[in-house]
Amino acid sequence: MKTAVGIGTAALVAVASALAFSPRTPPPLAPNSVGAEKTHFNALTIAGKRLLAAGAMGEILYSDDQGAHWTPAKITQDRQTLLNNMSFASDSKTGFAVGHENWILRTRDGGASWEELNFKPKNGEPLMSVARLPSGDWLSVGAFGKAITSKDEGKTWEPYTLPAEVEDKHLNRIASSADGKHWLIVGERGLVLRSDDATATWHAEPAFYNGSFYNAMPLANNGWLIYGMRGNVYVKADSHAEWTKSSVPAPVAFFGHAREANGTIVLVGQGSMLGVSDDNGKTFTLRRAKGRATLTDVVLLDEKSGKGWIASDAGLQPMPDLNAKQSTAATTQPSSQGTKP
């Protein structure tokens, strides 16, 4: 647990807000309950037509009707430990969830049930992200430069070699292009690792920012958008372009993203704030979602309509209508809680 607390102070993806809560067991969720999910959720994903959410107390919910009703998934061990990320294979059946204490869960039925593959309550580093590589192997990264890979669907894990620039930096997220050829790993102290050969090799991008990056999303022409603390968002227009800083009107820490069918980019972050860009990430305006919480992730169920769900440290909420008018008061700068210089 000492390691987990240490990572919270490093402001990894929504961890700071998670640790603000005293350990507690959330009220049990009845199958197909509506509006009962009020605990902290860190991750959202879609597997086939199923929507899934993973929470700070180790719970996973799933919905087969676009979030109208939620059902608790069955997990072999109740660890009440923070889960940070989920990822599924292309079959939408096999998936992994990772979290603190080196916790690794696997599902083979699309997320209805999960089995524990690994858990280290003593000196187990937090795992922050997991992804299936083009080779079919699985890769998970986390605190202090930890990177592990599995070639046998999670039965065994071994160290994964990354460039020396990783050192002991925290690795926050793995991201890939739609075709699986281009990849980024982003992390602490401005670390950006890049692969343009389907993860066969990696190299560190030249340093251009000294703060933490929390996530990344691919753009057209092999470009990228990466973002992190205090409103620091950077865009690489194509594979040969330089990284340029985006214009964001307030120092909002962002943690998750989505992209609508018309190209609008949506980032979610602290203070219930959404960063919205209609120019491929060059400039952002701010909108406020319902309530006042740290928004940790977002998924779109329908890219054309913009309908989706947002995870936060205060539960789950539907994606707001970005076309609706909003008062000036709703777009004021959030507090600085949860961010670092």
Rank of each mutant, 00 (worst) to 15 (best):
V130A: 11
D64P: 00
D278E: 06
S195P: 12
L127A: 13
A204Q: 03
R50K: 03
G145R: 09
K304W: 05
A16I: 02
N221D: 14
P27W: 08
D64F: 00
D313L: 14
S246C: 10
G223S: 03
L300A: 11
R230A: 14
W70V: 00
D168K: 15
L139Y: 07
P72F: 05
R259G: 11
N280G: 02
N84V: 03
S277H: 14
Y214H: 14
T296F: 05
F119S: 14
E165A: 15
G275I: 08
V276T: 10
G99L: 07
S272W: 02
N280W: 06
G275H: 11
A11S: 03
L117F: 02
L295S: 13
L274P: 06
A10T: 07
G291E: 04
G110F: 10
N232H: 13
I185F: 03
G136C: 07
H203G: 11
L51Y: 05
T201P: 04
R132K: 15
L139V: 05
E242N: 08
R24I: 02
H40C: 00
L19F: 12
R259W: 09
T244R: 15
G136M: 09
K307C: 00
T264L: 14
L83C: 01
N32T: 03
V192E: 09
G338S: 12
Q333R: 14
L12T: 11
A14C: 06
I104A: 06
R189F: 09
I60K: 08
L105P: 05
I46P: 02
K93M: 10
G306E: 01
G67M: 02
E303S: 15
A131C: 04
A329P: 01
A330L: 12
H69P: 09
A89T: 08
T331D: 01
G136L: 09
M229Y: 01
G6W: 01
S327C: 12
G187M: 08
T81K: 00
A16C: 00
P318H: 00
W114G: 02
P28M: 02
K122V: 14
T331L: 02
R24L: 03
G190E: 05
R50Y: 02
L193F: 13
I310F: 06
T9F: 14
Q270M: 15
K74F: 09
L267H: 06
M57H: 05
K74Y: 10
M273P: 04
L274E: 03
T328P: 00
T294D: 07
T331P: 00
I265N: 13
W114H: 01
G315I: 08
W309Q: 09
E153P: 06
T71K: 01
I104E: 09
G154E: 05
N323Y: 03
N102W: 04
K38M: 10
D168F: 12
G35Q: 15
G142V: 13
L61E: 00
A36E: 06
P134M: 14
D64V: 02
Q317M: 14
G315S: 12
E125R: 13
L51H: 04
L300G: 07
G228F: 05
G281R: 06
A73R: 01
G256I: 07
V186C: 06
F284S: 13
E101H: 14
V192G: 02
S246L: 08
N32Y: 04
V233W: 07
N123V: 08
N102L: 05
W243S: 14
A258S: 15
D65V: 03
A204S: 06
G263P: 07
S17A: 15
F119E: 11
A237N: 08
L300K: 11
G110Q: 11
L219E: 09
Y160T: 07
G142L: 12
